[in-house]
């Protein structure tokens, strides 16, 4: 069944006429994903590509197209507003790809979203892929910026903050012959909509997911929180990796959230907690797939 999205999911893209949004909307369409509408204020009535209609507002686009999920490629100064517009249009799921949104904006967005039915994934994330069953996983639901062809439909759930590390894990799994149920990039910002824990819970409840790879990095305690929950509640084997063992303390390593503040933030501390919670921790990023397969 996969989680969050599948081949039947209808998706609209906010910022579809921008270079970045347009490029990835097209790649998703090529992958077989149902991109049913685009939104760019002031460009309503135009068409993206061959047949995707563009609307001025998200609520119009959702009503006309039946989309339940929005992908956001809007530039940082306008992204918080774009997320809240999608929430107002009662989308089920909003996936914010945009990198560089001010933290204060996200703080207000999170507070404003309390009590709404919408789930937010990201921002600063690679998005979500539920691979299809065609050649090179064609026919799946690709929302965001991941290279589609590295996937393969199967039974491993992948959750990670980092885009490229997600691709790395997915690629390793596919090479080893193991497909994925759904791959979720939750994003590298200090404040995000969906946590490692949220995704673990969904994978735990998903019939199609039989094993999980959880990838984390230095900063914050989200991985530890998820691991502690998993130790008590998760029925499925989990392999993990934490990036940033060689990162100097007090420096922001690219991701706004990747900074070692206290002792619990370090890669060593997180790896230790994961191991204590029964998660098989991969020694190197090159062994994530192997480590999981070793548990099966």
């Amino acid at each position: 069944m996969a989680i969050l999205v599948d081949e039947n999911t209808k998706v609209l893209v906010q910022g579809i006429t921008g270079g970045f949004g347009g490029k990835h909307a097209q790649l998703s369409i090529d992958y077989g994903t149902q991109i049913v509408a685009g939104v760019t204020p002031g460009k309503g009535g135009q068409t993206f590509g061959t047949s995707t209609p563009i609307y001025d507002t998200v609520s119009d686009a959702a009503k006309q197209s039946g989309a339940t999920v929005s992908a956001i490629f809007v530039p940082p100064p306008f992204a918080a507003d774009a997320i809240l517009e999608a929430v107002d249009a009662e989308m089920d799921l909003v996936i914010a790809i945009t990198e560089g949104i001010p933290v204060a904006d996200m703080m207000r967005v999170k507070a404003a979203m309390e009590g709404s039915k919408t789930r937010l994934i990201g921002p600063n994330c690679p998005g979500v892929v539920t691979p299809g069953r065609g050649e090179n996983s064609h026919g799946g639901c690709r929302i965001g910026i991941a290279p589609g062809y590295i996937h393969k439909r199967g039974n491993v759930g992948v959750v990670s903050r980092s885009g490229t590390l997600t691709y790395e894990a997915v690629y390793q799994l596919t090479e080893l012959g193991y497909g994925q149920s759904t791959c979720v990039g939750i994003g590298g910002d200090p404040i995000n909509g969906t946590s490692h824990l949220d995704v673990l819970k969904m994978f735990n409840d998903d019939d199609e997911t039989e094993a999980i790879i959880m990838i984390g990095e230095i900063g914050g305690n989200a991985e530890a929180e998820a691991a502690r929950w998993a130790a008590e509640n998760c029925k499925k084997p989990i392999a993990g990796f934490i990036a940033g063992a060689t990162a100097p303390p007090g420096r922001r390593m690219g991701h706004a959230g990747a900074i070692v503040g206290g002792e619990e933030d370090t890669a060593e501390a997180k790896k230790k907690i994961l191991a204590e919670c029964g998660i098989a921790v991969s020694e190197t990023p090159s062994d994530m797939g192997k480590t999981l397969v070793g548990m099966l």
Binding site: G163, T164, E217, A243, A245
Partner: peptide, 17 residues
């Protein structure tokens, strides 16, 4: 020289490893 912060950190880690 790496693309992506997570992979860049992981690349440093594996060099050390």
């Amino acid at each position: 020289l790496v693309n992506g912060a997570g992979l860049a950190m992981a690349t440093m880690d594996i060099i050390k490893h």
